[in-house]
Nucleic acid binder design. Structure first.
Length: 266
DNA sequence: AACAAGTGCAACCGCTTTCCT
DNA sequence: CAGGAAAGCGGTTGCACTTGT
């Protein structure tokens, strides 16, 4: 990490304003912050300076932790999958980076925001094939969604199938613990009232869930590594057929299990 | 080889929202 | 309920690095 040396060489970062350090963090500061969080947990950021001996304000500490030091952060490049998710969610929500970030565990709002600005802002002028396709998909999805709304949620899951799914999930909980591969994992605050469920009337689109009903979970688990693109294409298709899953089904108390394999955003 | 332009990303700023007293 | 503090969020900046000429 060059920041430490940069701070040392450039001088900025050593500048103090009202007693607070600014600029790039040094490895020693990182160490102090990590130690602080280990001992006291996240939050109370304004206490960090006092308790950890850091000359940084709370805001700076929080940002450093959230964007850089958190152990659950995913390093490395944004994958094509994540890119498509970002595209989708940005089309839906606009610049609500933190909301988008919640659907991409291990990625920060700052990271996504930077990625968007550097990759898609310029692409917006000369659209790439990928972004064009994503937009086309989105349009189709929105059209379909509109149709679905007009149908007044006619295709709700029936309780018998739901019970079978839940029973299978109980059986296979460990098998699918690594599924879905990225986005849904670690998500704690799924809005269970909007969980999508495939269309019962179309065998093509309900394929995945009927695989579940037939006990084909291991295939899904295998897909989590090398075949995740296949799997995620499947998830997008689930969204395409977007049938609202009523809150009554969630009221079974299985939502916490169920949300492990639903689309990572609603 | 030297310079300019472009890119990526960490960090800051200011505003808004949420929490606490 | 009101006001202040803390946390969260999106926008912006600035610098090192990379690429093109």
């Amino acid at each position: 990490m060059y920041c430490g040396t940069m701070a040392a060489h450039m001088g900025w970062g050593i500048i103090e304003e009202e007693g607070w350090r600014k600029g790039p963090w040094t490895s020693e500061e990182d160490r102090l912050l990590i130690e602080y969080v280990r001992l006291h947990g996240e939050g109370r950021w304004n206490s960090v300076a006092r308790l950890a001996g850091l000359k940084r304000n709370g805001k700076s500490c929080r940002l450093r932790w959230v964007n850089y030091l958190r152990p659950d952060l995913k390093r490395g490049q944004i994958t094509p999958h994540e890119e498509s998710i970002i595209l989708e969610l940005h089309a839906r929500w606009g610049n609500r980076w933190s909301t988008i970030a919640r659907s991409l565990p291990g990625r920060t709002d700052n990271e996504i925001k930077n990625y968007w600005r550097t990759h898609f802002k310029k692409k917006a002028k000369v659209p790439s094939d990928a972004s064009e396709k994503a937009k086309t998909r989105l349009l189709r999805r929105q059209q379909f969604h509109h149709q679905q709304q007009q149908q007044q949620q006619l295709q709700l899951i029936n309780q018998a199938d739901m019970k079978r799914i839940m029973a299978l999930l109980d059986e296979n909980d460990t098998k699918i613990s690594s599924w879905p591969p990225q986005a849904a994992q670690g998500k704690q605050d799924v809005d269970t009232s909007t969980i999508a469920y495939p269309n019962h009337t179309s065998t093509e689109e309900q394929g995945f869930f009927y695989s579940m009903l037939n006990g084909n979970v291991p295939h899904v688990a295998e897909a989590s590594s090398s075949e995740d693109s296949f799997l995620w294409d499947g998830l997008w298709n689930l969204d395409d057929v977007h049938v609202n899953f009523t809150t009554s089904a969630c009221a079974t108390g299985k939502a916490s299990t169920f949300h492990n394999f639903v689309v990572p955003f609603c």
